[in-house]
């Protein structure tokens, strides 16, 4: 999958978690803009992991603050 396809898929997964209907851009922050708490993060990450058959460890999650960084990371992981 190329980056655009990964982006589209993750947007679809993020939709139900985006309770306030925030417009998601590359710079959207999960903690500050989307206000994800730790349980939401776990469910959201689990869905992405299942979709792409990858693992995003908490150590890797710590490096990901913004939406664009997540798309980059997943694009890279699913290609490996």
């Amino acid at each position: 999958m190329d980056r655009a396809e990964v982006d589209a898929k993750i947007r679809e997964i993020a939709e139900p978690f985006n309770k306030k209907g925030v417009t998601i851009t590359e710079d959207t922050s999960f903690q500050n803009d989307l206000e994800f708490d730790s349980l939401t993060v776990m469910d959201f990450v689990a869905e992405i992991e299942d979709e792409f058959d990858i693992i995003i460890s908490m150590n890797q999650q710590a490096e990901i603050e913004k939406y664009g960084q997540l798309v980059d990371a997943v694009t890279k992981m699913q290609a490996d």
Binding site: M42, D43, A46, I55, S57, M58, N59, Q60
Partner: peptide, 9 residues
């Protein structure tokens, strides 16, 4: 310990 940490539900 710096291991990769993977939590589950």
């Amino acid at each position: 310990g710096n291991a990769e940490v993977v939590p589950f539900k």
